[in-house]
Design a protein around this nucleic acid. Sequence first.
DNA 1: CTCGCCAAGTTGTATATACAGGCTAGACCA
DNA 2: TGGTCTAGCCTGTATATACAACTTGGCGAG
Lengths: 254, 254
Amino acid sequence: MSTAKPRYQELKDFIIEKISSGELQPADRVPSENELVETQRVSRMTANRALRELNDEGYVERVAGRGTFVSDYRSRSDLLEVQNIADEIARRGNRHSSRVMWHSRQHARGEIAKALHIEQGTDVFHLLLVHYENDVPVQLEDRHILSSFAPDCMEQDFDEITPSAYLTGIAPLQEAEQAVRAGIPNQAVRKHLDMEKGEACLIVIRRTWSKGRPVTFSRLHHPGSRYELTGHYTPPGSTRTQSTEIVGLENLRQ
Amino acid sequence: MSTAKPRYQELKDFIIEKISSGELQPADRVPSENELVETQRVSRMTANRALRELNDEGYVERVAGRGTFVSDYRSRSDLLEVQNIADEIARRGNRHSSRVMWHSRQHARGEIAKALHIEQGTDVFHLLLVHYENDVPVQLEDRHILSSFAPDCMEQDFDEITPSAYLTGIAPLQEAEQAVRAGIPNQAVRKHLDMEKGEACLIVIRRTWSKGRPVTFSRLHHPGSRYELTGHYTPPGSTRTQSTEIVGLENLRQ
DNA sequence: CTCGCCAAGTTGTATATACAGGCTAGACCA
DNA sequence: TGGTCTAGCCTGTATATACAACTTGGCGAG
């Protein structure tokens, strides 16, 4: 007895489904407003609202006089890029590799159960791996995944596909929440990341939602001397801008 | 010879102006669609679009049957809250105080000029101050401000009003860009923040735009043991959610 | 062959109209 | 007095229509 979805939302879902299934690839042409009027039996204003909102949300790019096109996934979210360190490294023109240090199926205890909103003892998958940029370690990923969300975790070869890419392949990310802190790593972490004694460590703690519930919880350790986390924020109401080149920041060293 | 602004955008600006000038306070009622139809001479659909977009952007809250109301500024942006550490501390129920360690008018050089997109030698205001939470130092703020943006900087009493509050009072923030890194502080920083030798430091480097150009550049040092930076992100296309309680994260200690 | 122009298709905006559904104050009844 | 119901306002959605501006491709004049 759920409320019926508005027609414009059905239209949006219709397009999003075509995009996420791969039927429509980046730069592909999306049906025009008038085509949607005919094939989907809606008024042009309704089709207009659907496409306009998809544009505002970054799914598509619209050009007056030409049409509507699927936008490159990457440009849709700066923070999603951070999710996948392999892409980030590739974008810098470097070579990414990773090595699984440990993986097992466990029963969630304490803080993990709490963070994932599950009962103590629920099945989770635990993974510890190191990411390398040109063979230099840049991230220690300590991740717990809800088993019911990704039952075939144990069969994955995470030396080949990053956990982040694997998970977004199962279902799209809905929400991410993260805390950033600085700290001195313990000896184990220091060894994995090949860090000097006394070197600081940037720690990102992230919880990610999919299908309305938290599905994975990760602690990412980065060597303070080799890593930087950037973000870009435009408050509501500002003109939509393309991401701006960060000039000068990378030259700063205290 | 600029292109005329669309009518719905003029309407949005009209409402935003009333909000940012203080004429409309949080929870105040915004003119209804039909009132806008009469007073602003637009069709109801145009008024609807303006108010709907302001709702999507977080400026107002709309309730079918009751009306449209100015939303609490705070709920509009998690990251804006981070901008003002005084509010953040107050929200935790603690007492904020700050102390100016140094301030002067300078000529921008090197990285500062580069970051602010200005010529070498342009007038900037340099400020160094420490923020305290219940008399415990939690942030060292090292900030440069474009003099032409805020000419009366030297007359401000930054022990009373935070630079962030002062700046947003001049003109609304448009965009912020930041990098986060971890590091070991030098002796001066360590002394200001009352840190142990070898303790890690969370460093936020932020550049903020207003009126289309970078106006201030700041380096914020936080003691790693006493501070955490949290953020919340929902990718486009997800259902809009209220901010979720962070459960468990605060108990994590490595 | 080349240049210019125009027609057709596309998005962007604006309006009038209509109906559904939520909310509330006040009228009205028992 | 207390409960109920309804009129009136509000937002949310859907449609038909209209015009403006932009882009592209093709056609025709020179």
